[in-house]
Design a protein around this nucleic acid. Structure first.
Lengths: 203, 203
DNA sequence: AATAGTACTGAATATTTATACAGTATATTA
DNA sequence: TAATATACTGTATAAATATTCAGTACTATT
Protein backbone atom coordinates (compact mmCIF):
# COMPACT_ATOMS: atom_id res chain seq x y z
CA UNK A 1 0.00 0.00 0.00
CA UNK A 2 1.29 3.41 -0.99
CA UNK A 3 2.37 5.75 1.73
CA UNK A 4 0.34 8.80 2.55
CA UNK A 5 1.47 12.17 3.83
CA UNK A 6 0.68 13.61 7.25
CA UNK A 7 -1.95 15.93 5.80
CA UNK A 8 -3.56 13.18 3.79
CA UNK A 9 -3.68 11.09 6.94
CA UNK A 10 -5.40 13.93 8.76
CA UNK A 11 -8.03 14.02 6.05
CA UNK A 12 -8.45 10.25 6.26
CA UNK A 13 -8.87 10.41 10.03
CA UNK A 14 -11.29 13.28 9.63
CA UNK A 15 -13.46 11.23 7.27
CA UNK A 16 -13.39 8.25 9.62
CA UNK A 17 -14.35 10.41 12.58
CA UNK A 18 -17.11 12.14 10.65
CA UNK A 19 -18.64 8.84 9.58
CA UNK A 20 -18.42 7.46 13.10
CA UNK A 21 -20.12 10.55 14.47
CA UNK A 22 -22.83 11.17 11.88
CA UNK A 23 -23.23 7.91 10.01
CA UNK A 24 -22.49 9.46 6.63
CA UNK A 25 -19.35 10.83 4.96
CA UNK A 26 -18.40 14.52 4.97
CA UNK A 27 -18.60 16.97 2.11
CA UNK A 28 -15.53 18.88 0.92
CA UNK A 29 -16.78 21.82 2.95
CA UNK A 30 -17.19 19.66 6.06
CA UNK A 31 -13.55 18.58 5.80
CA UNK A 32 -12.46 22.18 5.36
CA UNK A 33 -14.37 23.18 8.49
CA UNK A 34 -12.81 20.38 10.53
CA UNK A 35 -9.25 20.92 9.33
CA UNK A 36 -9.30 24.69 8.92
CA UNK A 37 -8.97 24.85 5.14
CA UNK A 38 -10.40 27.88 3.43
CA UNK A 39 -11.00 26.43 0.01
CA UNK A 40 -13.00 23.30 -0.80
CA UNK A 41 -10.36 22.54 -3.36
CA UNK A 42 -7.90 21.84 -0.54
CA UNK A 43 -10.08 18.96 0.52
CA UNK A 44 -10.65 17.95 -3.08
CA UNK A 45 -6.96 17.54 -3.89
CA UNK A 46 -6.33 15.51 -0.75
CA UNK A 47 -9.31 13.32 -1.54
CA UNK A 48 -8.07 12.72 -5.06
CA UNK A 49 -4.63 11.81 -3.71
CA UNK A 50 -6.20 9.36 -1.22
CA UNK A 51 -8.31 7.90 -4.00
CA UNK A 52 -5.29 7.49 -6.24
CA UNK A 53 -3.43 5.72 -3.45
CA UNK A 54 -6.32 3.40 -2.83
CA UNK A 55 -7.45 4.56 0.61
CA UNK A 56 -10.86 5.80 -0.39
CA UNK A 57 -13.24 5.58 -3.29
CA UNK A 58 -15.18 8.57 -4.57
CA UNK A 59 -18.49 8.07 -6.32
CA UNK A 60 -18.41 10.56 -9.12
CA UNK A 61 -21.19 13.11 -9.08
CA UNK A 62 -22.75 11.93 -5.87
CA UNK A 63 -22.77 14.12 -2.81
CA UNK A 64 -20.91 12.68 0.15
CA UNK A 65 -19.77 9.90 -2.16
CA UNK A 66 -16.65 9.08 -0.17
CA UNK A 67 -16.23 5.60 1.18
CA UNK A 68 -13.30 4.17 3.06
CA UNK A 69 -11.51 1.25 1.48
CA UNK A 70 -10.74 -1.59 3.83
CA UNK A 71 -7.28 -2.48 2.80
CA UNK A 72 -4.85 -5.03 4.13
CA UNK A 73 -7.60 -7.14 5.57
CA UNK A 74 -11.05 -7.83 4.29
CA UNK A 75 -12.74 -8.40 7.60
CA UNK A 76 -16.17 -7.16 6.69
CA UNK A 77 -17.64 -10.46 7.79
CA UNK A 78 -15.62 -10.58 10.96
CA UNK A 79 -12.17 -11.72 11.91
CA UNK A 80 -11.33 -15.37 11.40
CA UNK A 81 -10.48 -17.62 14.30
CA UNK A 82 -7.66 -19.95 13.40
CA UNK A 83 -6.94 -23.05 15.35
CA UNK A 84 -3.41 -23.34 16.67
CA UNK A 85 -2.49 -26.86 15.71
CA UNK A 86 0.65 -28.36 17.13
CA UNK A 87 2.20 -28.82 13.71
CA UNK A 88 1.61 -26.69 10.66
CA UNK A 89 1.44 -22.99 10.15
CA UNK A 90 -1.68 -20.99 10.81
CA UNK A 91 -2.90 -19.78 7.48
CA UNK A 92 -5.97 -17.85 6.51
CA UNK A 93 -7.10 -20.78 4.35
CA UNK A 94 -10.78 -21.31 4.88
CA UNK A 95 -10.41 -24.90 6.05
CA UNK A 96 -8.53 -23.64 9.09
CA UNK A 97 -11.13 -21.06 10.04
CA UNK A 98 -13.27 -22.20 12.95
CA UNK A 99 -15.62 -19.29 12.70
CA UNK A 100 -15.47 -15.52 12.61
CA UNK A 101 -15.81 -12.87 15.27
CA UNK A 102 -17.37 -9.52 14.55
CA UNK A 103 -15.57 -6.64 16.15
CA UNK A 104 -14.02 -3.36 15.08
CA UNK A 105 -10.60 -3.63 13.43
CA UNK A 106 -9.15 -1.31 16.05
CA UNK A 107 -10.77 -3.21 18.90
CA UNK A 108 -7.43 -3.62 20.66
CA UNK A 109 -6.14 -0.15 19.94
CA UNK A 110 -4.03 -1.15 17.01
CA UNK A 111 -5.30 -3.02 13.96
CA UNK A 112 -4.97 -6.79 13.88
CA UNK A 113 -5.48 -9.56 11.36
CA UNK A 114 -6.92 -12.68 12.92
CA UNK A 115 -7.60 -14.59 16.11
CA UNK A 116 -5.61 -17.63 17.14
CA UNK A 117 -7.10 -20.21 19.44
CA UNK A 118 -4.56 -21.16 22.07
CA UNK A 119 -3.63 -24.75 22.81
CA UNK A 120 -1.72 -25.66 25.93
CA UNK A 121 -0.73 -23.69 28.98
CA UNK A 122 2.78 -22.56 28.11
CA UNK A 123 1.77 -18.90 28.56
CA UNK A 124 -0.35 -19.47 31.64
CA UNK A 125 1.46 -16.94 33.82
CA UNK A 126 0.85 -14.28 31.18
CA UNK A 127 -2.85 -14.92 31.65
CA UNK A 128 -3.17 -16.83 28.39
CA UNK A 129 -5.18 -19.97 29.01
CA UNK A 130 -6.24 -22.90 26.89
CA UNK A 131 -8.90 -21.98 24.30
CA UNK A 132 -8.30 -18.26 24.67
CA UNK A 133 -8.36 -16.22 21.48
CA UNK A 134 -5.28 -14.14 20.82
CA UNK A 135 -5.65 -11.16 18.52
CA UNK A 136 -2.71 -11.45 16.13
CA UNK A 137 -1.26 -8.54 14.22
CA UNK A 138 0.83 -9.67 11.27
CA UNK A 139 4.01 -7.66 11.65
CA UNK A 140 7.75 -8.00 11.78
CA UNK A 141 8.00 -5.05 14.15
CA UNK A 142 8.83 -7.05 17.25
CA UNK A 143 10.41 -5.81 20.45
CA UNK A 144 11.88 -7.82 23.29
CA UNK A 145 9.10 -8.88 25.64
CA UNK A 146 6.43 -8.97 22.96
CA UNK A 147 4.26 -12.05 22.82
CA UNK A 148 4.92 -13.47 19.38
CA UNK A 149 3.45 -16.16 17.20
CA UNK A 150 6.50 -17.95 15.87
CA UNK A 151 6.91 -20.79 13.43
CA UNK A 152 9.96 -23.01 13.73
CA UNK A 153 10.06 -25.70 11.08
CA UNK A 154 6.28 -26.22 10.84
CA UNK A 155 5.79 -25.96 14.59
CA UNK A 156 3.74 -22.94 15.62
CA UNK A 157 4.06 -21.55 19.12
CA UNK A 158 3.12 -18.54 21.20
CA UNK A 159 5.91 -17.23 23.43
CA UNK A 160 7.66 -14.15 24.77
CA UNK A 161 10.23 -12.89 22.30
CA UNK A 162 13.76 -12.03 23.30
CA UNK A 163 16.61 -11.29 20.94
CA UNK A 164 19.85 -12.21 22.67
CA UNK A 165 22.18 -11.43 19.78
CA UNK A 166 21.90 -10.98 16.01
CA UNK A 167 22.05 -14.77 15.63
CA UNK A 168 20.24 -15.91 18.75
CA UNK A 169 16.58 -15.60 19.57
CA UNK A 170 15.04 -16.89 22.75
CA UNK A 171 11.38 -17.83 22.96
CA UNK A 172 10.31 -17.83 26.58
CA UNK A 173 7.17 -19.49 27.91
CA UNK A 174 5.26 -17.99 30.85
CA UNK A 175 5.07 -21.24 32.75
CA UNK A 176 7.89 -22.76 34.79
CA UNK A 177 6.89 -26.25 33.61
CA UNK A 178 8.03 -25.35 30.09
CA UNK A 179 11.54 -24.74 28.86
CA UNK A 180 12.92 -21.77 26.95
CA UNK A 181 13.42 -22.32 23.25
CA UNK A 182 16.73 -21.05 21.93
CA UNK A 183 16.89 -20.51 18.22
CA UNK A 184 20.25 -20.17 16.51
CA UNK A 185 19.48 -18.47 13.23
CA UNK A 186 22.61 -19.97 11.68
CA UNK A 187 21.20 -23.48 11.73
CA UNK A 188 17.48 -23.06 12.36
CA UNK A 189 14.86 -21.20 10.42
CA UNK A 190 12.32 -19.20 12.35
CA UNK A 191 9.44 -17.18 11.01
CA UNK A 192 7.60 -14.66 13.11
CA UNK A 193 3.97 -14.67 12.05
CA UNK A 194 3.16 -11.64 14.13
CA UNK A 195 2.50 -10.57 17.67
CA UNK A 196 -0.34 -10.70 20.12
CA UNK A 197 -2.01 -7.36 20.75
CA UNK A 198 -5.02 -8.55 22.68
CA UNK A 199 -7.03 -11.44 23.98
CA UNK A 200 -10.60 -12.65 24.18
CA UNK A 201 -11.90 -15.34 26.45
CA UNK A 202 -15.34 -16.86 26.07
CA UNK A 203 -16.66 -18.82 29.01
CA UNK B 1 -40.87 1.17 19.78
CA UNK B 2 -43.63 2.15 17.43
CA UNK B 3 -44.63 -0.25 14.71
CA UNK B 4 -43.88 0.49 11.11
CA UNK B 5 -45.79 -0.41 7.98
CA UNK B 6 -44.66 -2.83 5.30
CA UNK B 7 -43.73 -0.02 2.95
CA UNK B 8 -41.85 1.87 5.63
CA UNK B 9 -39.98 -1.33 6.39
CA UNK B 10 -39.05 -1.66 2.72
CA UNK B 11 -37.66 1.85 2.80
CA UNK B 12 -35.73 1.05 5.98
CA UNK B 13 -34.27 -2.11 4.43
CA UNK B 14 -33.43 -0.16 1.32
CA UNK B 15 -31.47 2.39 3.32
CA UNK B 16 -29.63 -0.35 5.20
CA UNK B 17 -28.77 -2.14 1.98
CA UNK B 18 -27.66 1.04 0.29
CA UNK B 19 -25.34 1.92 3.16
CA UNK B 20 -23.91 -1.59 3.25
CA UNK B 21 -23.26 -1.48 -0.46
CA UNK B 22 -21.95 2.05 -0.92
CA UNK B 23 -20.84 3.21 2.50
CA UNK B 24 -23.14 6.23 2.49
CA UNK B 25 -26.90 6.74 2.75
CA UNK B 26 -29.19 7.12 -0.27
CA UNK B 27 -30.87 10.26 -1.53
CA UNK B 28 -34.65 10.48 -1.96
CA UNK B 29 -34.11 9.78 -5.64
CA UNK B 30 -31.97 6.72 -4.88
CA UNK B 31 -34.75 5.24 -2.78
CA UNK B 32 -37.28 5.94 -5.55
CA UNK B 33 -35.08 4.14 -8.04
CA UNK B 34 -34.69 1.11 -5.79
CA UNK B 35 -38.34 0.83 -4.83
CA UNK B 36 -39.91 1.98 -8.08
CA UNK B 37 -41.39 5.24 -6.84
CA UNK B 38 -41.86 7.96 -9.39
CA UNK B 39 -41.81 10.96 -7.10
CA UNK B 40 -39.10 11.88 -4.62
CA UNK B 41 -41.86 12.92 -2.30
CA UNK B 42 -42.85 9.28 -1.90
CA UNK B 43 -39.49 8.62 -0.32
CA UNK B 44 -39.68 11.85 1.63
CA UNK B 45 -42.96 11.00 3.35
CA UNK B 46 -41.75 7.54 4.29
CA UNK B 47 -38.54 8.98 5.65
CA UNK B 48 -40.44 11.50 7.76
CA UNK B 49 -42.63 8.71 9.10
CA UNK B 50 -39.58 6.62 9.98
CA UNK B 51 -38.00 9.63 11.65
CA UNK B 52 -41.13 10.32 13.66
CA UNK B 53 -41.19 6.71 14.83
CA UNK B 54 -37.57 6.83 15.85
CA UNK B 55 -36.03 4.46 13.32
CA UNK B 56 -33.85 6.99 11.57
CA UNK B 57 -32.57 10.49 12.05
CA UNK B 58 -32.46 13.04 9.27
CA UNK B 59 -29.93 15.82 9.33
CA UNK B 60 -31.82 18.83 8.09
CA UNK B 61 -30.40 20.49 5.01
CA UNK B 62 -27.63 18.00 4.51
CA UNK B 63 -27.55 15.75 1.50
CA UNK B 64 -27.71 12.05 2.29
CA UNK B 65 -28.28 13.03 5.90
CA UNK B 66 -30.07 9.85 6.86
CA UNK B 67 -28.65 7.71 9.64
CA UNK B 68 -30.05 4.56 11.12
CA UNK B 69 -30.95 4.55 14.79
CA UNK B 70 -29.86 1.40 16.57
CA UNK B 71 -32.56 0.30 18.91
CA UNK B 72 -33.25 -2.91 20.73
CA UNK B 73 -30.63 -2.66 23.41
CA UNK B 74 -29.38 0.47 25.07
CA UNK B 75 -25.82 -0.47 24.23
CA UNK B 76 -25.80 1.43 20.97
CA UNK B 77 -22.80 3.37 22.04
CA UNK B 78 -21.06 0.28 23.25
CA UNK B 79 -20.81 -1.45 26.57
CA UNK B 80 -19.54 0.63 29.47
CA UNK B 81 -16.28 -0.16 31.16
CA UNK B 82 -16.51 0.29 34.90
CA UNK B 83 -13.48 0.66 37.08
CA UNK B 84 -13.26 -1.83 39.92
CA UNK B 85 -12.39 0.32 42.87
CA UNK B 86 -11.36 -1.35 46.09
CA UNK B 87 -14.26 0.15 47.98
CA UNK B 88 -17.63 1.03 46.62
CA UNK B 89 -19.98 -0.79 44.36
CA UNK B 90 -19.66 -0.76 40.61
CA UNK B 91 -22.59 1.14 39.28
CA UNK B 92 -23.51 2.21 35.81
CA UNK B 93 -23.36 5.83 36.90
CA UNK B 94 -21.65 7.84 34.22
CA UNK B 95 -18.89 9.07 36.51
CA UNK B 96 -17.69 5.50 36.87
CA UNK B 97 -17.61 4.77 33.16
CA UNK B 98 -14.09 4.91 31.78
CA UNK B 99 -15.18 4.53 28.20
CA UNK B 100 -17.30 2.21 26.12
CA UNK B 101 -16.47 -0.79 24.00
CA UNK B 102 -18.35 -1.56 20.83
CA UNK B 103 -19.15 -5.20 20.37
CA UNK B 104 -22.18 -7.40 19.78
CA UNK B 105 -24.30 -8.09 22.85
CA UNK B 106 -23.86 -11.83 22.39
CA UNK B 107 -20.12 -11.50 21.92
CA UNK B 108 -19.42 -14.04 24.64
CA UNK B 109 -22.18 -16.45 23.73
CA UNK B 110 -24.59 -15.21 26.33
CA UNK B 111 -25.70 -11.59 26.74
CA UNK B 112 -23.87 -9.43 29.23
CA UNK B 113 -24.28 -6.00 30.76
CA UNK B 114 -20.97 -4.26 31.27
CA UNK B 115 -17.24 -4.59 31.48
CA UNK B 116 -15.34 -4.43 34.74
CA UNK B 117 -11.70 -3.43 34.79
CA UNK B 118 -9.80 -5.74 37.09
CA UNK B 119 -7.54 -4.50 39.87
CA UNK B 120 -5.08 -6.79 41.56
CA UNK B 121 -3.95 -10.31 40.83
CA UNK B 122 -6.21 -12.35 43.09
CA UNK B 123 -7.53 -14.29 40.07
CA UNK B 124 -4.18 -14.64 38.34
CA UNK B 125 -4.27 -18.43 38.03
CA UNK B 126 -7.63 -18.15 36.30
CA UNK B 127 -5.90 -16.08 33.67
CA UNK B 128 -7.41 -12.84 34.91
CA UNK B 129 -4.71 -10.21 35.08
CA UNK B 130 -4.56 -6.61 36.21
CA UNK B 131 -6.37 -4.24 33.84
CA UNK B 132 -8.23 -7.04 32.07
CA UNK B 133 -11.85 -6.37 31.21
CA UNK B 134 -14.33 -8.89 32.53
CA UNK B 135 -17.66 -9.15 30.75
CA UNK B 136 -20.22 -9.13 33.55
CA UNK B 137 -23.69 -10.55 33.22
CA UNK B 138 -26.01 -9.24 35.91
CA UNK B 139 -27.65 -12.37 37.25
CA UNK B 140 -28.37 -14.24 40.46
CA UNK B 141 -28.14 -17.57 38.66
CA UNK B 142 -24.81 -18.62 40.11
CA UNK B 143 -23.35 -22.07 40.27
CA UNK B 144 -20.41 -23.32 42.28
CA UNK B 145 -17.21 -22.60 40.39
CA UNK B 146 -18.57 -19.53 38.61
CA UNK B 147 -16.45 -16.42 38.70
CA UNK B 148 -18.63 -13.89 40.47
CA UNK B 149 -18.52 -10.19 41.12
CA UNK B 150 -19.46 -9.93 44.79
CA UNK B 151 -19.99 -6.98 47.06
CA UNK B 152 -19.42 -7.45 50.77
CA UNK B 153 -20.13 -4.33 52.73
CA UNK B 154 -19.02 -1.85 50.06
CA UNK B 155 -16.02 -3.96 49.08
CA UNK B 156 -16.26 -5.31 45.53
CA UNK B 157 -14.28 -8.35 44.55
CA UNK B 158 -13.97 -10.92 41.79
CA UNK B 159 -13.65 -14.52 42.98
CA UNK B 160 -14.69 -18.10 42.43
CA UNK B 161 -18.04 -18.79 44.04
CA UNK B 162 -18.67 -21.79 46.25
CA UNK B 163 -21.72 -22.39 48.39
CA UNK B 164 -20.74 -24.58 51.33
CA UNK B 165 -24.10 -24.56 53.09
CA UNK B 166 -27.29 -22.48 53.05
CA UNK B 167 -25.59 -20.04 55.44
CA UNK B 168 -21.99 -20.23 54.28
CA UNK B 169 -20.52 -18.93 51.05
CA UNK B 170 -16.86 -19.20 50.20
CA UNK B 171 -15.19 -16.81 47.79
CA UNK B 172 -12.00 -18.36 46.51
CA UNK B 173 -9.19 -16.46 44.81
CA UNK B 174 -7.13 -18.08 42.06
CA UNK B 175 -3.82 -17.11 43.58
CA UNK B 176 -2.15 -18.88 46.51
CA UNK B 177 -0.96 -15.53 47.88
CA UNK B 178 -4.56 -14.64 48.69
CA UNK B 179 -6.83 -16.17 51.26
CA UNK B 180 -10.32 -17.56 50.87
CA UNK B 181 -13.12 -15.33 52.04
CA UNK B 182 -15.75 -17.08 54.07
CA UNK B 183 -19.07 -15.31 54.35
CA UNK B 184 -21.53 -16.32 57.04
CA UNK B 185 -24.86 -15.02 55.83
CA UNK B 186 -26.15 -14.86 59.40
CA UNK B 187 -23.84 -12.03 60.34
CA UNK B 188 -22.54 -10.65 57.02
CA UNK B 189 -24.34 -9.22 54.07
CA UNK B 190 -23.20 -10.21 50.62
CA UNK B 191 -24.55 -9.11 47.28
CA UNK B 192 -23.74 -10.90 44.06
CA UNK B 193 -23.58 -8.34 41.27
CA UNK B 194 -23.31 -10.98 38.60
CA UNK B 195 -20.88 -13.35 37.03
CA UNK B 196 -18.07 -13.19 34.53
CA UNK B 197 -18.89 -14.71 31.17
CA UNK B 198 -15.90 -13.51 29.23
CA UNK B 199 -12.76 -11.46 29.17
CA UNK B 200 -10.99 -8.95 26.99
CA UNK B 201 -7.37 -7.94 27.28
CA UNK B 202 -5.94 -4.95 25.44
CA UNK B 203 -2.18 -4.81 25.18
C1' DA C 1 16.34 22.26 -15.68
C1' DA C 2 12.16 20.01 -16.06
C1' DT C 3 8.56 17.28 -14.15
C1' DA C 4 5.57 15.72 -10.77
C1' DG C 5 3.61 15.74 -6.26
C1' DT C 6 2.12 18.29 -2.22
C1' DA C 7 -0.46 22.00 -0.15
C1' DC C 8 -2.96 25.48 -0.27
C1' DT C 9 -6.47 30.17 -1.71
C1' DG C 10 -10.20 31.90 -4.33
C1' DA C 11 -13.86 32.00 -7.51
C1' DA C 12 -17.22 30.11 -10.71
C1' DT C 13 -20.68 26.76 -12.02
C1' DA C 14 -23.32 22.81 -13.30
C1' DT C 15 -25.43 19.28 -10.95
C1' DT C 16 -27.34 17.10 -7.05
C1' DT C 17 -30.46 17.12 -3.56
C1' DA C 18 -33.78 18.24 0.06
C1' DT C 19 -37.94 19.99 0.57
C1' DA C 20 -42.16 22.42 -0.03
C1' DC C 21 -46.64 22.64 -2.39
C1' DA C 22 -50.67 20.81 -4.94
C1' DG C 23 -53.13 16.91 -5.83
C1' DT C 24 -55.55 11.91 -5.59
C1' DA C 25 -56.94 7.83 -3.15
C1' DT C 26 -57.58 4.44 0.59
C1' DA C 27 -57.80 2.80 5.28
C1' DT C 28 -58.17 3.50 10.21
C1' DT C 29 -59.49 5.78 14.26
C1' DA C 30 -62.27 8.94 17.37
C1' DT D 1 -68.40 12.20 10.16
C1' DA D 2 -64.20 14.30 10.68
C1' DA D 3 -59.57 13.71 11.42
C1' DT D 4 -55.37 11.35 10.74
C1' DA D 5 -52.09 8.32 8.73
C1' DT D 6 -50.64 5.90 4.71
C1' DA D 7 -49.22 5.82 -0.06
C1' DC D 8 -48.47 7.63 -3.83
C1' DT D 9 -47.69 11.30 -8.64
C1' DG D 10 -45.95 15.55 -10.34
C1' DT D 11 -43.78 20.02 -10.27
C1' DA D 12 -40.84 23.53 -8.66
C1' DT D 13 -36.96 25.61 -6.38
C1' DA D 14 -33.57 27.14 -3.06
C1' DA D 15 -29.70 25.33 -1.09
C1' DA D 16 -26.07 22.02 -0.93
C1' DT D 17 -22.32 20.05 -3.22
C1' DA D 18 -18.83 18.34 -6.45
C1' DT D 19 -15.81 19.82 -9.54
C1' DT D 20 -13.19 22.62 -12.69
C1' DC D 21 -10.09 26.46 -13.61
C1' DA D 22 -6.58 29.89 -12.35
C1' DG D 23 -3.14 30.96 -9.28
C1' DT D 24 0.99 30.65 -5.67
C1' DA D 25 4.58 28.20 -3.30
C1' DC D 26 7.39 24.52 -1.76
C1' DT D 27 9.78 19.95 -2.22
C1' DA D 28 11.56 15.82 -4.25
C1' DT D 29 12.85 13.26 -8.24
C1' DT D 30 14.74 12.53 -12.80
Amino acid sequence: MKEITIQQNKVLDCIQEYINKTGFPPTRADICRKLGFKSPNSAETHLRALEKKGYITIESGASRGISLVNHGNDHDNGFPIIGLVAAGSPTLASENIEKTVNCPANFFGSNFDYFLRVRGLSMKDAGIMEDDLIAVKKTQDIKNGDIVIARIEDEVTVKYFERKSPELIKLKPANKDFNDIEVDLRNTEIFIEGKSIGLIREN
